[in-house]
Design a protein around this nucleic acid. Structure first.
Lengths: 327, 327
DNA sequence: TCTAAGGGTTTGAACGTTCAAATAGCGGTA
DNA sequence: TACCGCTATTTGAACGTTCAAACCCTTAGA
């Protein structure tokens, strides 16, 4: 049986009304008399009618598509695919679909924005991996396009204010550090990323803050190493810190933490709760990714469907500590 | 600066030709005289024209979208996200975009097919995770819809023949087994999945085959355990096999292999080369996922653009052994 | 000279939807 | 009776593209 195309005209004929009335039942039900509405609904049901998004888009300029960049996985220890899964699901619930694109850097991503807008007119973009001097957000904002970032706008000047959803990295590392303090540790090291990474600096700040709470140890600054994020550098950094007297380590990522674990039997806490952490029993901070995805969609629907708010939405979620073997 | 909409009519005006000629330059360049073609191309360039896919789709019924289901990640030790990344890239090269959906089981996936076809009319579907009695493929085939599966049609009856791309699991485990034989092992165990999983049985068969090549050991069948795929059962199975005299283990997945590693210091080889394997130094079989993605797209473009072949394409790729610490 | 053929280009219509404006029906008021 | 105002519904047009058919021009053959 070939898939028969059911159009709004077919439904109209069946329900003995005009095309427009059917359209109204679907889009502005309150314009239609109760009885008619029911009749139309039944016809829709019986014929299995589904709105043709291409035709709708032609008329309204709305595609019901959200464009998302699929991230390059280097070591696979990232968090993006779980976020994407959540996004697909919550978008679907709100009547949107996710369309993917890939790009190597900001510039080529912007070129892709242009491409996509010409060809598919996504209603909004979801950006991940925000960073200092992010030109993507300004490009979109200048053109008045709808978007939300999963990640704060790090170091944005005045006016660079846009909707975002993020996870409070500092709260996470602070919780991790307190967990170690509670276990009696007093010399807790931190292995981070190079300065200038918004996410990395944020995570570091939680460790600093938590140590500050504890009066006994204020020489914190020295028990710290920066790495490129690889397990190899993580291990080297961990050895140095242990030699310097650290009895426990908080790490900026699971990848680094994995390296640190090789340095010796000190408690280690990672960040992101990747599958690797689960597999090797690494205590880690878990980002509420489904929740983040839900919030991203909510921010966007508010932007697209309700009258746009005068202040952009900002959502900051807290990660949770998943305690395993290593701490 | 607001994004100006450039239509085919704008280009036509600029190049002093009709709409249709512009359309021909884009779609059937050989119909247009060299000189005119060049003039049109320049106008396209200058105005930054991009075809409006919604309008095109209205007329032709072609959306240039490929629909893919985003897989539920249980333990995150899967292979799908890398495949998806490759698919997004090679689809883009061929002028297609990937649209995502999610579904909990075959039935709800079929309902989603219907939904998507009504609303977005994807030109084709890419299915993953084929299995015995897969009703999705027959649903699509009955309706004459274009699709390719990443995974063979396990145990399909006559007529159930469709295009597919897959990785030769048996060749992989055979290579792994030979690698262990070459290292001098004679009692090589296999930890698998329950019987009836197409993929699992295939991977097992490679181990059987490779052992058969070696005349010395034909009591192979006993050095074998089936598990639910968890690391916990993997560890238990490994202990039993080691107790039974196995000196090396081939595993159906990295997850199981991870468990097996905990059972003792015998060589272990996993399957899929997940980030976890890389992180813990597990020797594993790597699927050529980008290549698989490229081939999926190629199969589909042939199906959609060239006159459809009378025989469906079948592509079987070989995994490669990534040797690390554990074997 | 007339007709045929064919390459290159243009014209009108159509895809399925929704916007904007028009129309019908009906009760109430002047 | 005539008119107004309101609600419920219908009609025509338009979104941007491509298909199908028509048209124009040149060249070739009868």
């Amino acid at each position: 049986m070939m898939p028969e195309k059911v159009t709004i005209a077919d439904v109209a004929r069946r329900a003995n009304v005009s095309r427009q009335t059917v359209s109204n039942v679907l889009n502005s039900p309150d314009l239609v008399r109760e009885e008619t509405r029911e009749r139309v609904r039944q016809a829709v049901e019986e014929l299995g009618y589904r709105v043709n998004q291409a035709a709708r888009r032609m008329r309204t300029g709305r595609s019901r598509l959200l464009a998302v960049r699929i991230e390059q996985t280097q070591d696979g220890m990232n968090v993006f695919d779980r976020f994407l899964h959540g996004l697909t699901e919550s978008a679907a619930k709100a009547g949107y679909r996710v369309i993917l694109y890939s790009a190597d850097d900001d510039r080529s991503e912007i070129a892709t924005f242009d491409d996509l807008l010409g060809a598919y007119e996504p209603d909004a973009f979801v950006l991940t991996g925000t960073h200092y001097g992010d030109v993507r957000t300004s490009w979109l904002a200048e053109r008045g396009l709808a978007f939300v970032t999963f990640g704060r706008p790090w170091g944005m000047p005045e006016g660079g204010d846009h909707p975002w959803v993020d996870v409070d990295g500092a709260a996470g590392t602070a919780a991790a550090t307190r967990h170690l303090l509670d276990a009696g540790h007093r010399r807790i090291g931190f292995i981070g990323w190079p300065e200038g990474s918004g996410v990395g600096d944020d995570r570091r700040s939680g460790w600093v803050r938590a140590l500050g709470e504890d009066a006994e140890d204020s020489e914190a600054g020295v028990l710290e190493r920066r790495t490129d994020g690889s397990a190899a550098e993580g291990e080297a950094a961990a050895r140095e810190l242990i030699a310097a007297g650290a009895t426990a380590l908080v790490c900026v990522s699971d990848s680094v933490a994995l390296g640190a674990m090789q340095a010796g039997p000190v408690p280690v806490i990672g960040f992101d709760d990747t599958p690797v952490a689960a597999a090797i029993g690494l205590t880690s901070l878990s980002q509420p990714l489904s929740e983040a995805a839900v919030r991203c969609v909510r921010v966007l629907t508010r932007l697209l469907e309700d009258d746009s708010p005068d202040k952009p939405d900002h959502v900051l979620l807290r990660p949770s500590l998943v305690i395993r073997r290593t701490a």
